[in-house]
Nucleic acid binder design. Structure first.
Lengths: 114, 114
DNA sequence: GATATAATTCGATAATAATAGAAATATAGA
DNA sequence: TCTATATTTCTATTATTATCGAATTATATC
């Protein structure tokens, strides 16, 4: 059963990585992180990155499906924001892989923000 | 010019994320991290994960192209190992996004390995 | 209700990626 | 050189993903 949960977890993290694994979507995530915590409206993201609205909508949907972004409506505007908690979780997962098994990476080496 | 370099960097990190963004390849990376620093031979990885050799070879090639794994030959065996430095770089990039712009995530929250 | 704007959904196409059996290549040893 | 094993490359098929114009839905205002 632990194996099954593990499998589901791996699938989930793989999907999250995949969601950020295209240039347009990684740009979107960066932009939303930069605009955190307020977020940005769709039109502004589209203007900034030069992405047609229908294309952008699909990208945002994918990021939303993987819980990497959140949405709230304010009138006719939809405000998208980065889900930093999910991102933290993903990084934590990768980080855990890197150091808990056999000290492949020294904790200090990955702590930046000096 | 800074914009161009930035674009290339984003494309590179997106490719790295994409490379880990499938269940089989994320499993491979995890397995190689677990076996770090010695790594594992291809056949052992295939046996452990139940992946046919030709399929596995393609996955390893992709991970190698993104510099997430390294190879060395020893007789008829090829030893693949995780490139922890590249992984560290990727995590650092994401991590930087998360905290340098507006303290979206507290550094302490992502430092695990307690 | 009519109009205007924001954003999504529809529909269709093109591009990329995943999979795996069969054939080829690389290396070691007899 | 011949044989055995490890791994890749070839070839083909199937599945998934990215893209975007046009049509639709949602909300607000007059």
């Amino acid at each position: 059963m632990a194996k099954k949960e593990d499998a589901a977890l791996i699938a989930r993290y793989a999907d999250m990585l995949s969601a950020m694994g295209t240039e347009p979507r990684l740009r979107i995530v960066r932009l939303l992180l930069a605009a955190h915590p307020g977020g940005m409206i769709v039109g502004e993201v589209g203007d900034e990155l030069g992405i047609p609205s229908s294309t952008l909508s699909h990208h945002l949907e994918k990021l939303k499906n993987e819980d990497l972004v959140r949405v709230r409506r304010e009138g006719t505007y939809l405000w998208y924001s980065a889900n930093t908690e999910a991102l933290r979780e993903l990084l934590g997962f990768l980080y855990a892989e890197c150091c808990t098994r056999n000290k492949a990476i020294e904790p200090q080496k990955i702590v930046c923000c000096k």
